[in-house]
Design a protein around this nucleic acid. Structure first.
Length: 598
DNA sequence: CTTAGGG
DNA sequence: CCCTAAG
């Protein structure tokens, strides 16, 4: 059997070189159109190992390549997705792909025909494998400082997506074909990998292949399942072995995780199964994290609890994810590593959404619906202003659409306006209405659309002395519901619902309340202020105080600031109170520590 | 339920 | 203003 040559992706030095190139390019913000995949010639030894081609062999192949120019995979368009490539490649090109592991050499035309049946399957595996996120064994993730240098290896998967044909220029290749995550992060392509690179993953490729050799069909099928996360009915040992090896290679080549996990069942399955012996739990966590939005409103659901639980923060996933989070390119894709406590469910939810978007942006082949997502993401930010009345004067403020999920309560509020005779009631309904009632009320409101839309009777709205500002603010809130005619279809920019501008009197009472009751006694302040905070919750009050602090702070920092909506006199009071309270807490602290030590 | 803080 | 984690 003569030496067989195929286009083989070089997972060794050149691979890292191209990563380095990619890195340089991105650093210099020269957006190149394609990321090169480097092919390297190898000879497949009897036992299936890949042996670097000698110079002589290289020449031989060069001739072959020149003669077969047309059959070669062409350099894809920059915009071409891997799916495109895989779809459009001729059988002969796939044959070349399959010859990666050298097993195809023994296949006859007949075998090829048989293979054709599993072509699609194979294609899936190939893509699947190349996306599969392989976290290298724990031992290789010890020093985070080392890891920082390799954040951009995340991009390596891109290399697999756009194969370029490259002439091999005789670079030596590490026999083990390990790709170390510790390759140098600088732009010097020839920089040798650090000694740490010598550490090998647990599953040696060679060993793995030798194992494959002796496996029964059944065992092979099992291995297949473990590798790709799905069953196979294939009874062909050879083909099974080939596909398993292919999957493993692709898996190994992508020394990163996370970018592509949460989108697809199969991928998660693959991930999970690859590590199924030891890291089942952590795979599960990935699933949970990615799917957080599936359980957003059921805090007692076991899955949610699992996703929230602290132990996952120490899982391998956490380690590998965190180590990428510092990269600006991936900012927002992962939660910040700085976050001390567990992320909120909402955070996870939103993060996973961002994740989905970014994934589709970065790997087109994953997005079945790329177009719509792009539109959504580009239109995600709405720039507009709105008029707001504060302290009786209309001011224009920038409006930012938060694109929150809609809250059913809003209908309740609207309804409450029709039916309730007081804000207290509406507030109560607002807070305590139960699920079934909600529905009922929503239906109800639909029947009401022809009825009177006028503002609630102000005399009934507030029991006692309502201040002028309150009238103003109630007007503000009333046009929250529908300022737009009977259609109720508001095509303008959606407003933040439930927004009532804080009136000067409210702010004043708040400041007074803080001065008398201290900071933090929000519920007390609310209750002691009679009806003046009728429609403000303690949290609202607290938020307002926070804002006031901010405002007063800002005014201090840049003295002679423009006259904000809030009189500087009040802000001064806020500042004083803030100071007072900070002194108070300091005193408390000193006292406490003294007690503690003495 | 209240408070503190992030979103 | 909303949401949620901690007390």
């Amino acid at each position: 059997m003569g030496p067989l040559f195929g286009s083989v992706e070089d997972y060794g030095e050149m691979f890292q070189d191209s990563i380095a190139q990619t890195r340089c390019a991105s650093l210099s913000s020269t957006n190149q159109t394609g990321n090169p995949v480097v092919y390297k010639l190898v000879r497949v030894a009897q036992d299936g190992r890949l042996v670097p081609a000698t110079d002589e062999e290289m020449l031989e192949v060069k001739d072959l390549l020149e003669n077969n120019e047309n059959d070669m995979p062409t350099v894809p368009d920059p915009g071409q997705t891997e799916e495109d490539i895989l779809d459009n490649w001729s059988p002969s090109q796939f044959l070349q792909l399959e010859s990666f592991d050298g097993l195809f050499q023994s296949e006859t035309e007949e075998a090829y025909t048989e293979n054709l049946n599993s072509r699609l399957e194979f294609k899936e595996e190939l893509m699947h494998g190349s996306q599969m996120l392989s976290t290298l064994p724990d031992t290789e993730f010890k020093s985070s400082s080392e890891l920082v240098a390799n954040e951009e290896l995340v991009q390596s998967e891109v290399l697999l997506q756009e194969p370029n044909r490259f002439s091999s220029n005789g670079l030596s290749m590490d026999q083990s074909m390990d790709v170390s995550p510790f390759s140098d992060a600088t732009c010097s392509p020839k920089e040798p990998a650090s000694p740490a690179a010598a550490s090998k993953p647990e599953f040696s490729r060679d060993a793995g292949e030798r194992c494959l050799k002796n496996l029964s069909i059944k065992a092979l099928q099992e291995t297949f399942r473990a590798t790709f996360g799905r069953e196979t009915t294939c009874k062909d040992k050879l083909s099974l072995k080939r596909r398993i090896k292919m999957g493993r290679i692709n898996t190994r080549v992508v020394p990163t995780t996370s970018t592509l996990t949460v989108d697809d069942n199969n991928q998660i399955g693959g991930e999970q199964n690859i590590y199924n012996d030891t890291d089942d739990a952590f795979s599960k966590v990935m699933v949970d994290e990615g799917r957080a939005n599936h359980c957003k409103d059921s805090p007692s659901s076991p899955d949610c609890i699992k996703g929230d639980s602290n132990d996952f923060r120490h899982s391998p996933v956490e380690a590998s994810v965190d180590h990428y989070s510092g990269n600006e390119d991936y900012d927002g894709e992962y939660r910040s590593a700085k976050r001390a406590r567990k992320p909120t469910r909402r955070y996870i939810e939103e993060t996973s959404k961002i994740n989905e978007k970014q994934q589709s942006d970065k790997s087109p082949m994953l997005s079945k619906d790329e177009k719509s997502i792009k539109v959504a993401s580009s239109g995600g930010r709405v720039v507009a202003t709105r008029m707001v009345s504060i302290s009786g004067s209309r001011i224009e403020v920038p409006y930012v659409s938060h694109a929150r999920r809609s809250r059913p309560r809003e209908n309740i509020m609207a309804l409450a306006k029709f039916h309730s005779s007081s804000w207290e009631l509406s507030n109560d309904v607002h807070k305590s209405v139960s699920g079934p009632v909600k529905q009922e009320m929503q239906l109800d409101i639909n029947h009401q659309t022809d009825k009177d839309y006028s503002k609630p009777n102000l005399s009934e709205v507030d029991e006692d002395n309502m201040e002028p500002e309150d009238i103003d603010s109630s007007g503000d809130s009333s046009d929250d519901n529908n300022s737009n005619n009977n259609n109720g279809v508001d095509l303008s920019i959606p407003r933040r619902k439930h927004h009532r501008a804080w009136t000067l009197s409210e702010v004043t009472t708040l400041v007074e309340g803080v001065s008398t009751h201290g900071v933090g006694k929000w519920s007390v302040i609310k209750s002691r202020s009679g009806s003046r905070f009728a429609h403000r919750s303690a949290v609202d009050i607290k938020d307002k105080w926070r804002n006031l602090l901010k405002a007063s702070f800002a005014q201090t920092a840049s003295n002679r600031m423009k006259h904000g909506p809030i009189p500087s006199k009040i802000l001064l009071q806020v500042r004083e109170l803030a100071q007072k309270q900070s002194h108070a807490s300091k005193a408390r602290f000193v006292k406490g520590s003294r007690n503690g030590f003495l």
